[in-house]
Amino acid sequence: MQVADLNQIDLQALARGDKRSWDAFVGAAAPLINAMVRRALAPYGLGEEDVMDAAQDVFVRLCAQDFRLLRTYDPARAGLSTWLAVVARSAAIDHARRRRRPTQPLDEVPETALGVEDRHVEKLKIPQGLLTERQTLILRYLYDEEREVADIAQLLKVDPQTVRSTQHRALVRLRAYFREGTG
């Protein structure tokens, strides 16, 4: 079954513990959970057995305590695939943290994370309300995570040009505020 088949799962029967519904759900959800777990565990350098264990953790979470977590899913708020991906990633990260510390090749670490020169420099606090939440988020992605504009645009479901203009407006505000503040 493909991920699209998740939409055909009878969620009420599944939450009642119906065996057939569970089997169908597992078949439909396994590719997504498998992919999400592998992605989440990649920075931790864990092996195939950990992928299998973490995936089982996800399924156990879903059916534990009479499907308590699964009952929290609300189709009116988000698609099942998206919610499952979030749950799977969360469970995989928990699994990885129990197993070991993450490792990441040095050339993949964002430059800002490697920098030590700022540690002894007192940073200027951005006052609350100067930037919108979205402006802050976009600057975080661009400068802290060093992500592509296209990636951010895809996540926020906006045009890449919107990301660039939001970035530009945020920087203008920051420069104006700190120019005024610092004279």
Binding site: Q2, V3, G17, K19, W22, D23, V26, G27, A30, P31, L32, I33, N34, A35, M36, R39, A40, M52, A55, Q56, F59, V60, C63, S81, T82, A85, V86, R89, S90, I93, L137, R140, Y141, D144, E145, R147, D151, Q154, L155
Partner: peptide, 30 residues
């Protein structure tokens, strides 16, 4: 921040089949 990008990325790509062992073990949970 990483979780949001990972989820958005995974949902936008074709997914390979999961290992059969994973499916069998998960089905046995119920």
């Amino acid at each position: 921040r990483r979780a949001a990008l990972d989820v958005a990325d995974i949902l936008g790509m074709p997914l390979p089949a999961a290992p059969q062992r994973m499916v069998v073990q998960a089905r046995a949970l119920v």
